[in-house]
Design a protein around this nucleic acid. Structure first.
Lengths: 162, 162
DNA sequence: AAAACTGGTTGCAATACGAAACCAAATAAG
DNA sequence: CTTATTTGGTTTCGTATTGCAACCAGTTTT
């Protein structure tokens, strides 16, 4: 993957992508969230080449997103389980899935279903909200560059006071 | 990017990554959300090679995430603006940024700040919630495979009735 | 004890990447 | 209004990453 490392960028998104920005990483994490634990699971579910899978798993372990643990059932192999860091990616995974369901759904419908366990209903769209849970429109969300870091756009070049 | 296309996979996440899974795509989209509109903005902000940027922008336009529009201020060039599809990726972008802020923050702090515009306070963590806005713990969120599609794990092989 | 499976590793070829050079058209400067 | 600079690319090239197939030791099943 690593043609150019994003790890020296200040941007949090870039730094995150440095961990999970690889083609397969997020799919591996999703499978882990769905219960995959063993090499063979990932390989069969994803149809990924074995050497690539080895490489991705090693990266994810090195990045603290997965960890290797002895097999729970006494077998000799090790298993891959999500760390807290890894589980904390759930919003990203779910948001990607929801976007896909909405905009690029497969004709046969989605392959995974995310629900509120209690009610069994589909999970509401993951979306910016106020602290009290109220949904926000995108224009109610402010995104700005912190001190100095940031882009040069005409508005900012001209110090446009919009 | 496209070594193996994910577009034939049923999984929504894979299909989404087929659009934005490339190294730079999400960073370009983030910059677009921050106000970048011109080729030079993206290039300078990201430090991306020009040929790669050309390629990514074309892909994003082809995927309906960006569109080319005449420059708003009468100049001859065209500008790249997010479509509704593109803006709808905001939760993904924000979730990635929040994860990065939490787990892999740069020593100098985040470069972008996302706020509730009204109050100016940091945007609460994007996270699964019930329809009424109540936060959910991860074990209150159900993720399952739809009919048949899905992985082979021991639990499912053995039809473990957990 | 033999056969099959698991979890890899090692080439190899194809593809995608970044860097640098180059270029026509559009802007800006003098 | 003539020249210099910027913009928005394209082309070429060398390197890095990927998928595929073959192979292999150790584990598990038959």
């Amino acid at each position: 993957m690593k043609t150019k490392s994003f790890s020296d960028m200040q941007c949090s998104i870039a730094r995150t992508l440095d961990h999970v920005g690889s083609w397969w990483s997020l799919l591996i994490i999703r499978d882990a969230m769905m219960g995959a634990r063993r090499f063979k699971h990932f390989q069969r579910n994803l149809g990924i080449a074995k050497n690539t899978l080895t490489s991705r798993l090693n990266d994810l372990v090195a990045g603290g997103i997965l960890e290797r643990v002895p097999a729970a059932d006494g077998y000799a192999h090790e298993e891959y389980v999500l760390t807290e860091r890894g589980r904390d990616l759930a919003p990203v995974i779910i948001a990607l899935g929801q976007w896909g369901d909405k905009w690029v759904a497969h004709e046969k419908g989605p392959s995974t279903v995310v629900t509120v366990r209690e009610s069994g209903e589909p999970l509401p769209r993951i979306w910016p909200r106020r602290a009290d849970g109220e949904l926000l429109a995108l224009n109610e969300v402010g995104m700005r560059w912190a001190n100095g870091a940031g882009p040069i756009t005409e508005t900012q070049e001209k110090e446009d006071p919009s």
